[in-house]
Design a protein around this nucleic acid. Structure first.
Length: 829
RNA sequence: GCCUAGGUGGUGGAAUUGGUAUACACGCAACACUUAAAAUGUUGUCCGUCAUGCGGAUGCGGGUUCGACUCCCGCCCUAGGCACCA
């Protein structure tokens, strides 16, 4: 014993990890040959991070480790795996930091990227950083601009002046999709409304395809649902209402044209164009002009959140005008109210208080007529059918049969929707919640929009030969309400030099979501200066497995999907969906189960954890602690379990090397061999299904078994070299450093990560004996050991002879028995 | 209010075409080694009971079934998301 104790090495994770991280780089272990046609391709993608000053966080650590494990696994299985990483490096934090300190965003971004790369390497993440993509690099954004140009030429981008969400702090417009809880997603300032001209991508053109193609992908159910809900398709009708004594019509969108006879008033959103027109028309001036104007101003101050939260349904009657219900020609009042939003439908509604909760609440407050026109089918006589109860009156919001609707009485809702729409000259139509994507930002640190304006104000695309259209450097970062680029002398001169006197450049930059909507198309051909991706390299697309946070389920995924569909329509791609399989990692919480945040001071730094426990332990622990998609509690006290596990393997392997290296007469331990094959099977299947926690647990069970057997056997009979090596290989994706060290210790000169993934023998992975549980009336009373495939009658006979079973069945009639092969026998008495 | 996910020992979690509930890990306890501690090892650890037995337990209450963490009905709680969508 003393001998091996003296020669035994200690598991020094720092030394081992540093050594191999250096070696991998030197020996090109991470290199991918993108043109290798001999192997099947696999594209494993991570959501690229924004390189913030705070560095990598634990969420990245989990997600990137998960993909790194899968990458190593697929590579060992013989796939040619592309597993790139890059940086989503345009964005507000760097610009805000520049405003505060004067340090140019390019500089801080570069520093942060270097820091991120160092952190990623310290975790043993094997990215080939030569194939990196960096969205603020002109070599990259040249192609962002080029793609914008393709959209421009193909009518998929247009300019319009629109009231948009405005963030006072960022001094920029914010897309609807980027407003979180009425606040700016990035800085949490409350969003206001402001009229701003800007460029929009026609994402709504693809609304139906964006819904339908969700059938083609292997994504989490809820992510698919979220995408569907975000697009928000609804069937209905557009119907026009005449205004009395005014030659204009109000068009409404309704999902319930069958309730038209019950429309007892109309509501316009305060921003509705017609309201402004009516206000300007002196002949028609409302009798309550001041009240109306005051209400409009109050609404403008409100964010969408405020409008939503107001419990009282406020609104103002437009005194002096009225509309005609086209179904029954009755004169009905018109209101403006902020519960009607300008951005959805037509910005105007017909209100049917008897059959819509919100309309009812408004009608109740303003004492308006409530006319019932729908009753539950087969319930014509009784008018009191109810779904939702509101005060004393009952509201029925479902479809049913019509009453009080003239010649349509007795008709079913379904049929009446078509017939009534037809009757009033309306139009059946589909409406979407999705709006076109506003991409203009009045910011500095973003991709310049490659457009110039003629002296007459006409927008023209900057020709390809002038790309990349560089972001100027001579600007002041301070927010003024206009784009920082308007400051640049150089940009102005550059524009005039190329296009002539009087031409001015577009000053806005693009939403950073544009950069991240196509980056995965660039990795296969990251250095191509002539194309965004060559035809040959497009064979890598689409992405086979994408791992990233669930927080991106709406915007990033939707925008990326839109890009792929748009580029297919243009003819630049030939597939429909960017990400075939998608999985999310859960949040990493502190030891008390709370969200990590700077303000709480409970943020765990991955690099510090790597220092203390080693990259292998950090990797294995974060995957072991919980299923990938669940929340992970980062508990430092628990990581020691993984550390001990690795240490045991380290000690065991070194013992093995000392005693067995030159010993050719190791006897095959059949029990260990069977367990090994079971473990290979389990780990292989679990990795394939991203069930890393149970894969690691089965590796632990294997090690425990070996430790247990060590007491019963002489050391040189424990494991063959082949068995030991197979075990190290299936551990390698999780703990790449320690396995590499032990692999080298066994005398290998090539990396373990270039080895083939062990095959399991189905026969050996199967037991030839099983324990069958004997139940009496569903309660476990005994168990017997059986041969694999033993005859049911025989098992039954043996079970009834069992002493413990005898006690229960003696003098009882056996009604029936149920046998589950190799598992269970239930005797019913 | 709506949508989604979930509720299993002291803790993280395992097990679902319905078939031994609590794998694996942490923690805890006892023992061994040690002058001692750490480390390591061994044993034990859902609850009740004197128990190699018996009974009970997967948020709560019912149901289906030979058998339910798993399926059905009703309710409670937690987390995340959405929100006047006409």
């Amino acid at each position: 014993m003393l001998k091996w104790f003296l020669t035994m090495k200690k598991y020094d994770h720092k030394k081992i990890e540093k050594k191999w991280q250096g070696q991998w780089k030197k020996n090109h272990v991470v290199k991918v040959d993108k043109d290798d046609q001999s192997k099947e391709k696999f594209y494993m993608l991570d959501m690229f991070p924004y390189p913030s000053g705070e560095g990598l966080h634990m969420g990245h650590t989990e997600s990137y480790t998960a993909s790194d494990v899968f990458y190593r696994f697929k590579k060992m299985q013989g796939f040619n795996v592309l597993h790139p990483q890059g940086f989503d490096s345009f964005g507000l934090p760097a610009e805000n930091y520049a405003i505060k300190t004067g340090v140019h965003p390019a500089e801080t971004t570069q520093q942060n990227i270097e820091n991120y790369i160092a952190q990623m390497k310290s975790l043993g993440l094997n990215y080939d950083f030569d194939e990196m993509v960096n969205s603020s690099d002109p070599e990259y954004y040249k192609w962002t601009q080029w793609l914008f140009g393709e959209f421009f030429k193909n009518n998929l981008v247009y300019k319009k002046t629109a009231k948009i969400n405005w963030c006072e702090s960022c001094q920029t417009g914010i897309a609807n999709e980027q407003v979180v809880g009425g606040e700016c997603e990035r800085c949490n300032t409350e969003i206001m409304q402001k009229e701003i001209p800007g460029w929009f991508f026609k994402i709504t053109d693809f609304a139906d395809a964006l819904i339908e193609d969700l059938d083609k992908v292997d994504w989490p159910e809820y992510t698919i649902k979220n995408q569907r809900n975000w697009i928000g398709k609804s069937e209905g009708a557009k119907i026009k209402f005449e205004i009395k004594n005014f030659d204009k019509k109000i068009e409404v969108f309704t999902t319930r044209p069958d309730t038209l006879f019950g429309a007892t008033y109309m509501v316009l959103s305060p921003e509705h164009k017609l309201v402004a027109e009516l206000l300007e028309n002196k002949d028609l001036r409302f009798r309550n002009y001041d009240e109306v104007e005051k209400y409009i101003i109050e609404t403008q101050k409100k964010s969408e959140m405020d409008r939503v939260e107001g419990k009282e349904k406020t609104g103002v009657l437009l005194l002096g005008i009225s509309a005609i219900n086209p179904a029954n020609k009755e004169e009905i009042p018109i209101f403006i109210a902020d519960y009607v939003l300008s951005g959805y439908g037509t910005g105007a509604i017909m209100a049917v208080p008897a059959h819509d909760t919100r309309d009812y609440e408004f009608a109740d407050t303003h004492k308006l007529e409530i006319r019932k026109v729908i009753v539950r089918s087969g319930d014509i006589e009784i008018l009191s059918t109810a779904k939702t109860k509101k005060g004393d009156v009952e509201i029925f919001c479902e479809k049913g049969k019509l009453i009080n609707s003239g010649k349509f009485d007795g008709m079913d809702s379904e049929e009446a929707q078509k017939k009534i729409t037809e009757f009033v000259g309306g139009e059946l139509t589909t409406n979407y919640r999705l709006r076109d994507w506003s991409i203009s930002r009045q910011r500095y640190w973003g991709c310049p929009i490659p457009v110039v304006y003629s002296p007459e104000g006409e927008a023209r695309l900057i020709p390809e030969e002038h790309l990349p259209w560089l972001l100027p450097t001579d600007v002041d970062f301070k927010p003024t309400g206009i784009s920082p680029l308007a400051d640049s002398k150089e940009l102005k001169e550059r524009t005039e030099k190329i296009f002539g006197k009087g031409w001015i450049p577009e000053y806005d930059t693009m939403d950073t979501f544009v950069d991240s909507s196509w980056y995965f198309l660039r990795y296969p051909d990251a250095h191509n200066d002539n194309e965004f991706c060559s035809e040959a390299r497009k064979k890598w697309l689409p992405v086979d497995l994408y791992i990233g946070g669930a927080e991106h389920t709406y915007m990033h995924l939707l925008f990326s999907r839109f890009f792929v569909k748009a580029l297919k329509q243009i003819g630049l791609l030939n597939f429909d969906e960017p990400f075939m399989k998608l999985r999310h990692q859960g949040m990493v919480l502190d030891s008390e189960g709370k969200k990590m945040s700077k303000s709480k001071g409970n943020v765990v730094n991955p690099t510090e954890m790597v220092e203390r426990f080693g990259a292998d332990s950090v990797r294995a622990y974060i995957l072991f602690a919980a299923p990938l998609e669940d929340e992970v509690i980062w508990n430092e006290n628990n990581i020691v379990g993984i550390y001990r596990f690795l240490e045991k393997i380290f000690r065991y392997t070194n013992e093995w090397i000392i005693f067995n290296r030159d010993n050719e007469k190791i006897n095959l331990n059949k029990e260990i061999d069977s367990l090994l094959h079971k473990t290979i099977k389990k780990v292989t299947e679990d990795i394939e299904n991203l069930k890393y926690n149970t894969a690691i647990s089965s590796l632990m069970i294997f090690v425990n078994k070996i430790r247990e057997q060590r007491g019963n056997t002489s050391e040189n009979q424990l494991m063959t070299l082949f068995q030991l090596e197979s075990f190290l290989k299936i551990l390698a994706p999780f703990a790449p450093h320690i396995t590499e060290e032990l692999w080298a210790g066994l005398g290998h000169t090539e990396s373990i990560h270039l080895e083939e993934w062990p095959e399991y023998n189905e026969k050996l992975a199967k037991d030839d004996k099983h324990i069958v549980v004997i139940q009496i009336n569903g309660k476990v009373r005994s168990e017997i050991e059986i041969e694999d495939g033993e005859d049911e009658e025989n098992i039954k006979k043996r079970a009834l002879e069992d002493e413990k079973v005898q006690k229960w069945v003696v003098e009882k009639e056996i009604k029936k028995t149920i046998y589950i092969t190799n598992k269970l026998l239930n005797i019913v008495i």
